[in-house]
């Protein structure tokens, strides 16, 4: 094509619009059935995380308090679980906000990118935190007050802890691999948003010349 005929394209676009408007009707029954089922699934997703946490966390805390007492370990665990709960609430907010659409498209795209970054960081932080907590518990249990100070026992417990931890990491790596495609798109998306927002900065309609509607 020698050059792009913008006006011609706009005319063809209007014609396309007219043709689509005259096109087939979306069957209302089918639409209702489909959207009803799917919206329920999406809305439930975030809430299951939160409700599950609310049900399980008191039990875990009760168990830890009962076995280890209200020591440092209990409070560290409580802090970790509180952070995880806060993250679940944030997840629900992101899901619900995505459907409300009271801000611009760019802001939502940014929110999604931000959410994915937070999700990634949270996953790493939770693993590191849980590992440190486990090690703390182990060292304190064996070398702390009332501990056996048995080095061979320590080594065995350490090996068992590392094995459990490795299984957890392996499972999450499998999930992460599945997420890689999504993460690659995320990086690309973040770059696109930054380019998009920086492109027009500091240039007004007057500076830019012919930019009439």
């Amino acid at each position: 094509m020698a050059g792009l005929d913008i006006d011609g394209i706009r005319r063809e676009w209007s014609e396309l619009t007219r043709r689509v408007e005259r096109g087939a009707v979306v069957p209302p029954e089918m639409l209702r059935r489909s959207v009803r089922g799917d919206s329920a699934v999406l809305r439930r997703y975030g809430w299951v995380n939160l409700v599950g946490g609310v049900v399980v966390i008191p039990f875990v805390l009760w168990y830890v308090a009962d076995v280890y007492g209200l020591g440092v370990f209990f409070w560290l665990l409580l802090a970790g679980l509180a952070a995880a709960t806060a993250f679940s609430v944030y997840q629900i907010v992101v899901y619900n906000r995505a459907g409300r659409m009271n801000a611009g498209v760019v802001q939502y795209a940014e929110a999604v990118v931000r959410y994915m970054r937070v999700e990634r960081i949270m996953t790493i932080v939770i693993y590191v935190y849980m590992f440190c907590l486990m090690m703390y518990m182990l060292v304190d249990g064996i070398f702390g007050d009332g501990g056996t100070e048995d080095v061979s026992m320590f080594v065995r417990c350490l090996a068992a802890s590392l094995a459990i931890f490795a299984v957890g990491v392996a499972i999450s790596l499998r999930i992460m691999r599945w997420e890689q495609g999504k993460l690659r798109r995320l990086n690309e998306a973040a770059r696109q948003i930054e380019d998009f927002l920086s492109e027009g900065d500091g240039t007004s309609c007057e500076d830019g010349g012919a930019c009439g509607e």
């Binding site: 792009l4 611009g104 939502y108 027009g200 830019g208």
Partner: peptide
């Protein structure tokens, strides 16, 4: 501008640049 969440002036500049880019690509 309202749909995209950017300023009106920004919309004008971006659209002008996109049109230029499309023209260049078509050539």
């Amino acid at each position: 501008a309202e749909i995209m969440g950017i300023s009106k002036a920004n919309v004008a500049v971006k659209i002008m640049r996109i049109k230029e880019r499309l023209k260049r690509m078509s050539e």
